[in-house]
């Protein structure tokens, strides 16, 4: 493992800083940060699979939705306690997701991207027609049990999640597993030619991704207290997740977290000037240009800047 003291120092600084944040900012800002935390979780989930292996998922809300709907239905319709429904939701996301996505991992990357996009649409249609008495149909569900009261508690829960998931994934991706997954994204043939079963590795990446998406989706629905299929299975939501991951820096953990915060606050600050969907015009445009000319994201830009400063101070 390639862990240095400054890595741990940065994590400590991040966690301590986030811990005292509620003392420093308003309730409104806190709610924005809660959204950023969940977006960061979704972006990390996307990145473990797509940012690393290059098997792009355009249907990530499908996984998030599996987790969210499972726990929402269990708690609301069957009065199952959340201690059971949330683990069940994670399990359903991992098992259900792989049953459906597995066939797609057998074919080339582009097909995988196509299939995931189709699955999100399938899920959108299914929740509306199959047992609408359970799923709430087109209108979705509301009055779902919430786990916390008030912005501060909601914040601490989301922060606990992102800190533990982020740190856990970061440790895992520092091992050779992380190296192998990134290697698939660079040259899958050579990974196979190094004697590794890439299907097994991709499945592992997928399982990790589904675990994080299912957990994030389940907690998110218990934070919102409601679920609406049109907002969830929406291409704009896919777009937000992917842009957060790649803008921050794909194939890293800090990148998606950073990207999620950057994006959430950019959207928030654009709101007074551009109230509607037009915001996506500006922010999609920024994302597109950045991605095309700095595909490694802001994380990489910062790194370059830091090493330039270091280089200067040394000479």
């Amino acid at each position: 493992m390639n862990i240095r003291w400054y890595h741990l120092a940065l994590w400590t600084a991040f966690i301590v800083g986030m811990f005292f944040l509620p003392q420093l900012v308003s309730k409104g800002t806190l709610r924005t940060i809660i959204f950023a935390n969940y977006l960061a979780i979704f972006a990390i989930s996307w990145d473990v699979l797509s940012g690393r292996t290059g098997y792009v998922s355009f249907g990530h809300p499908f996984l998030i939705g599996l987790g969210a709907y499972t726990t929402a239905i269990l708690t609301k319709r069957f009065d199952v306690p959340v201690e059971i429904s949330i683990p069940a939701a994670v399990l359903v996301t991992m098992v259900g997701g792989s049953l459906l996505f597995l066939p797609a991992l057998r074919v080339r990357g582009s097909y995988f991207a196509l299939v995931t996009l189709a699955f999100m649409e399938l899920m959108y249609q299914l929740v509306q027609v199959i047992r609408p008495d359970l799923t709430g149909g087109t209108r979705g569900m509301s009055g779902i049990q919430t786990l916390t009261r008030g912005a501060v508690n909601g914040y601490y829960l989301s922060f606990g999640l992102i800190a533990s998931l982020g740190f856990g994934m970061w440790l895992l991706m520092k091992t050779r597993l992380g190296t192998a997954l990134s290697a698939i994204g660079m040259n899958e043939e050579a990974v196979r030619g190094s004697g590794l079963n890439t299907t097994k590795l991709k499945l592992a990446a997928f399982m990790l991704s589904a675990f994080v998406a299912g957990l994030g989706g389940a907690f998110y629905v218990h934070y919102l207290g409601s679920i609406a299929p049109r907002a969830l299975f929406d291409i704009n939501f896919v777009f937000t997740i992917i842009v957060a991951a790649i803008l921050g820096g794909a194939s890293t953990i800090i990148g998606p977290i950073f990207g999620a915060f950057f994006l959430t606050f950019l959207l928030e600050y654009l709101r007074p000037y551009l109230p509607g969907a037009e915001r996506y015009f500006i922010y999609g445009g920024i994302a597109l240009v950045l991605y095309m000319f700095e595909p490694k994201g802001l994380h990489h830009v910062l790194q370059m800047a830091l090493s330039a400063i270091k280089g200067k101070s040394r000479s």
């Binding site: 355009f58 291409i235 704009n236 896919v238 777009f239 969907a277 996506y280 597109l288 991605y291």
Partner: peptide, 9 residues
């Protein structure tokens, strides 16, 4: 994909 969303906007 990003471009599609931009064009929609």
């Amino acid at each position: 994909l990003i471009l599609a969303v931009v064009l929609q906007a």
